[in-house]
Design a binder for these strands. Structure first.
Lengths: 239, 239
DNA sequence: CGTCAGGTTGACGCGGGTCAAAATGAGTGG
DNA sequence: CCACTCATTTTGACCCGCGTCAACCTGACG
């Protein structure tokens, strides 16, 4: 399943066989974690990063009254908290939303990589910058898009990202998120998400039910959200 | 004025004299740009990054109807688009909001740095991860904070960041932003920003007028926003 | 002293929040 | 195989924060 991580990297940059080996050697062990497990807590000193191999995870921050904002979704192949290597302590929580398989990557191995492999370092630096680009797109959604557009944009983003690792096709993808989870991504209430889900279904754009997203009209969905995949950087460039 | 950049780095990590020299040598030239100049356009292939030495800049994205979302503010000492080194093309615009002094840092010098100076590479990697942390905090604001809390949070963040480079004290700071600019940071309309500015003044928390932010009650402002500076990473850690 | 960007204010409307209740449905144990 | 449970989804009625629209004010600058 670590091939999903390689696939994700290769979608953006070439990797030599030697580099692939170096990447594979980053993982010390794999583990499974239950749904709703916090794998990295805000403020905690970290000694390793978490590579998501299977399942869904998210980053979130919350306010004192319990309101929660998910700042990014993670799909298989993603590093959930590679930025923890330089930040040491996270400004947010990382939580499994479904049962997950994760790879543990000790920070001393990442550090050795930065000392010995400048090109791979640049590739992983890129990877955290891609997370930032996703954050920016979400800021645009949260600040300026309507509720319908926000959900459409999220569905389009997940479709692209899951396709990269072979977990989506043109018909749709499996997505084990509750409407509460979606509301925490979108800056809405779960009640309103329910209305928006219905509207997208009635507009024959997409059907979202617990467990599965079915895409009826992807161009229409993209047009509604004004979605372009530029911010996901799918055209490989040299590093 | 490049000392502001050094000050910003040293607030988070130690720098040896040799490292300081290496950092200084990154700048090929300095320039001035007028207010409202776009110094890096979305999608454009970049060959250098822009170090902000004086003035205010921002990153923004927009929708087809002209609605704009500023995703981050830049203060003197910040790299405005260091992430452009790995991304090659930006997913957003970078614009001067006031007349600015900038340093031009060619990407081949950054690349040389990543080949020869692993520790400085980690420090600059950290720097772009700090941008991402700011993006996440803004996602929290845009998704979950009320209009009043959002403005309070922004004023608190700028106070901390400007203090680091000696451009703010406990009384307040100069800030040449229009209410339109603020509205584009906060995901609000300029009309509503005007009302919020009045409310913060009437609550004797802060006075915001064109050119100057005066802080009357910083603890009150921070409490309103539930602001903590954790996400700005002011406690130095080793890299 | 004219011009024009930006700031200010008021009236009104709407998107999305709140509250409450009922329906659904995936386990779980008997 | 059924009864029970509890989280989640769904729906309706009502409300409010913020947007919209429009008019007027202010002040910097030529």
């Amino acid at each position: 399943v670590i091939e999903r991580h390689i696939a994700r990297l290769v979608a953006r940059h070439t990797l030599s066989p030697a580099e692939r080996e170096t990447v594979r050697a980053l993982i010390r062990e794999t583990r499974t974690v239950d749904a709703r497990t916090v794998v990295a807590a805000e403020g905690q000193l970290l000694s390793h990063s978490t590579l998501l191999l299977d399942g869904l995870m998210c980053r979130y921050k919350d306010l004192s009254d319990g309101q929660r904002q998910i700042t990014e979704m993670h799909v298989p192949g993603d590093f959930a908290d590679l930025h923890g290597f330089t930040l040491k302590r996270l400004d947010h929580h990382v939580m499994a939303l479904t049962p997950c398989v994760i790879g543990i990557v000790p920070h001393d191995r990442v550090r050795a990589l930065t000392d010995a492999h400048p090109r791979l370092t640049r590739i992983y630096w890129f990877s955290t910058n891609l997370d930032a680009a996703i954050h920016r797109e979400w800021e645009l959604s949260l600040g300026r898009r309507s509720a319908d557009q926000r959900l459409a944009a999220l569905l389009c983003e997940l479709h692209v990202r899951l396709s990269l690792v072979g977990l989506a096709d043109e018909s749709g993808y499996d997505l084990a998120l509750t409407q509460i989870d979606l509301s925490e991504c979108l800056g809405l209430t779960s009640v309103h998400v329910n209305r928006v889900v219905r509207r997208l279904r009635e507009a024959e754009l997409a059907t979202v039910r617990r467990g599965r997203v079915t895409l009826h009209d992807l161009p229409g969905l993209r047009a509604l959200a004004e979605f372009t995949d530029d911010y996901l950087y799918l055209r490989p460039e040299d590093l």
